[in-house]
Simulated scan of single mutants.
Amino acid sequence: MNSTPQRGADEVVVLSRVRRAYGAEHTGVVALDGVSIGFRRGTFTAVMGPSGSGKTTLLQCAAGLDRPTSGSVLLDGVELTGMSERKLTKLRRERIGFVFQSYNLLPALTVEDNVTLPLRLASRKAEPGSVARVLEQVGLAGRGKRRPDELSGGQRQRVAIARALITEPAVIFGDEPTGALDTHTALEVLRLLRSAVRDGGRTAVIVTHDPVAASHADRVVFLADGRIVDEVYGASAETIAERMTHLGAWAEHPAVHVPGGSV
């Protein structure tokens, strides 16, 4: 399951034999162990696995937030390996959107200012009407002058999604984006992410522990002990939950490759 994926023009993110180790060579921890995977344009992928399986490390390496010990990461046609921190920061601001469980909004700023923050950090101005358009897209029309503490948790996450979309990124990464939300609100947020993929041609990759959240993705990738051990397509929450319960056994006996996959 960790074989090198075919590199096609439709793959926005490609990890090839990525290994990430922390600590000393013989006594440290290997978070990712030779992972190879591609994420295609216009697709929604959920990454699942038990605690310590390497999910967040995979996300961070794919987004250029962490550097692999070895292997390569290609994002939107750009090789991240060896790139300077300054260039990585610029790339992230221009080509990547982030959505986190904790929202990461600045309480002193209005909704509009939080949304446009990535543009300001990149010394760019918002296109006329773009802020209003993206707020309407996430269901927050007319709330641009409010501050985060005047909004519900679901509305704050909508602001975070608007902020992720404002730069028109190639890929949106989410780390447990529905983890702090109730079931109804989480479903609304997942529909927004699906809409960004379907209507905007974005690529979305989220880490989640929730089979219901993962069932909204086109593909679910399962990690165990730093390796990809299985993947499913268009699966129900029940099927995903069942696969999760058998990850330990599958890690010892990797599953057969699913036709049409990128892994």
Rank of each mutant, 00 (worst) to 15 (best):
H26D: 14
R7D: 12
T81L: 09
R20S: 05
L117C: 08
Y22L: 06
L135W: 00
R133P: 00
A204N: 02
G234H: 14
I166W: 02
E168Y: 00
A108K: 13
V220N: 03
Y233H: 15
G38T: 07
D66A: 15
R133C: 00
T110G: 06
C61W: 04
M1G: 09
V258M: 11
T56K: 08
V171P: 03
H246P: 00
L59T: 09
E112Q: 11
R86Y: 09
R191Y: 02
R93T: 03
W250D: 13
L106G: 06
H26C: 00
E94F: 00
G200H: 09
M244C: 14
H253P: 00
R95G: 04
P211F: 04
V232H: 01
T183H: 13
H184C: 00
L119N: 09
S53G: 08
L32H: 06
Q137R: 15
V258Y: 05
H209T: 11
Q6H: 14
G97R: 03
V263G: 15
D230H: 14
P50K: 09
E94N: 11
L121Y: 08
Q155I: 02
I228S: 05
S195F: 11
R93A: 13
R41C: 06
G28I: 08
L88A: 13
S36F: 05
T183V: 12
V14G: 09
G42I: 06
A251L: 02
T185A: 14
D218L: 09
T167C: 12
G144Q: 11
G34H: 10
S102K: 12
V111H: 01
Q155A: 03
P128E: 06
A196I: 08
H257F: 10
L151W: 05
T245D: 11
L247R: 11
E85W: 07
D113C: 01
V232F: 00
E252H: 14
A251F: 07
A170I: 10
A255I: 10
M48Q: 09
K145M: 05
E11L: 12
A237Y: 09
E231T: 14
R194M: 01
M48R: 11
E242N: 14
L80W: 10
N2S: 13
T110C: 04
A170S: 14
P107Q: 13
A249L: 13
P148A: 11
R20Q: 12
A31L: 05
G226Q: 04
V138D: 01
H216N: 11
A235D: 08
G154R: 04
Y22S: 01
S195K: 15
A241I: 03
V29P: 00
G248C: 06
R67G: 01
A217I: 07
L151Y: 05
G54C: 09
L181H: 07
V232D: 02
I37R: 14
R67P: 00
L135M: 10
R120G: 08
V30I: 15
E252Y: 07
P169R: 10
E112K: 07
Q101V: 07
R194S: 08
S262M: 08
T81A: 15
A122K: 03
N104V: 07
G153C: 10
R227T: 12
T167A: 15
L65A: 04
H253C: 07
A255L: 15
G8A: 11
V205L: 12
P50V: 08
G261M: 12
A180E: 13
A24N: 13
G77F: 11
H209Y: 12
V18N: 04
S130T: 07
V73S: 04
G248Q: 14
